[in-house]
């Protein structure tokens, strides 16, 4: 099975975010990026499928952040067979533009399966996984939490809510939006990533940023005041513990 995995760099969720002067976007000058966590699960699921039935795993990522090389080399170190960086210094790309980049890179390829994280925190104008599927006119399932590859099709488990799931048989080629891999994403030692870097193997594809077709414009962005409405407890952990026990007592649970 030949599998393509779509990876995106997203603003590090633990970093403090600031807005630009116009208040229409994040201030991206000093922003750190990490691999979208759902894409990490997509990569893991792809590697597990390859271990099950053989084949290849090719990872793709738009070149729109300094961290993208590292993300792609990490994927190679984990076991991907090839890594392709789409463009360089592309700047800010909305979901439609990212999807168009991926769809273009995938069209004409022989991938039986395209795996992508089910969502990313910056997908204002739609989920890239579903947009890619729609652009390529391939069947897709979102919120996938496990796969069992078959012959010409794949059995996938889609998660609904409250522990309810449904299984589907999906004809290949298909696109899957991965919520969680069957197993937690594997760890890879820094030394192995360095080895991958030294071996090279990252292919840069020379493409321009596609024009966006999203038609959604940000008028104003805000960072909500933290703890608005909440009583913020001051002091060290002892003071906090003291106050929290008072609250628990008032709630009648201690």
């Amino acid at each position: 099975m030949n599998i393509a995995v779509l990876l995106r760099a997203v603003p590090d969720p633990v970093e403090e975010l600031e807005l630009n002067d116009e208040g229409t976007d994040l201030d991206r000058d000093f922003l750190g990026y990490v691999l979208n966590e759902f894409d990490d699960h997509a990569l893991e699921e792809a590697l597990l499928i390859k271990e099950d039935v053989g084949g290849t795993v090719t990872v793709f990522a738009p070149g729109n952040a300094d961290e993208v090389d590292q993300i792609l080399y990490t994927a190679l170190a984990k076991g991907a067979d090839a890594a392709k960086k789409l463009g360089d210094d592309l700047g800010l790309l909305d979901a439609h533009a990212q999807a168009a980049l991926f769809a273009d890179a995938l069209s004409g390829g022989d991938h039986d399966l395209v795996l992508c994280g089910v969502q990313a925190s910056d997908e204002l104008d739609g989920q890239v996984a579903t947009l890619v599927a729609a652009m390529l006119d391939r069947p897709h399932v979102a919120v996938v939490v496990g796969t069992r590859p078959g012959d010409g099709s794949i059995r996938v488990t889609k998660e609904y809510w409250a522990g309810i799931t449904a299984d589907y048989d999906v004809d290949l080629p298909a696109v899957l939006g991965i919520q969680a891999a069957r197993e937690a994403p594997r760890y890879v030692a820094v030394a192995k990533i360095r080895q991958a870097q030294q071996a090279g193997g990252l292919e840069e594809i020379d493409v321009e940023a596609p024009e966006s077709t999203a038609r959604v414009k940000v008028v104003e962005m805000r960072i909500p005041e933290a703890g608005e409405g909440a009583e913020m407890i001051e002091g060290d952990e002892e003071a906090a513990a003291e106050r929290i026990v008072e609250i628990l007592r008032a709630a009648g649970v201690v």
């Binding site: 933290a226 703890g227 409405g229 913020m232 513990a241 628990l248």
Partner: peptide, 30 residues
């Protein structure tokens, strides 16, 4: 630990700090 965490937007009470410092203190008191 993150004062910007959106959880503080929905919480009634919040404390910015390390859960590993707080939890043993809470266990003792409870």
């Amino acid at each position: 630990t993150d004062p910007q965490a959106p959880i503080f937007g929905v919480a009634h009470y919040g404390w910015v700090g390390d859960l590993f410092d707080l939890v043993p203190e809470l266990v003792d008191r409870v």
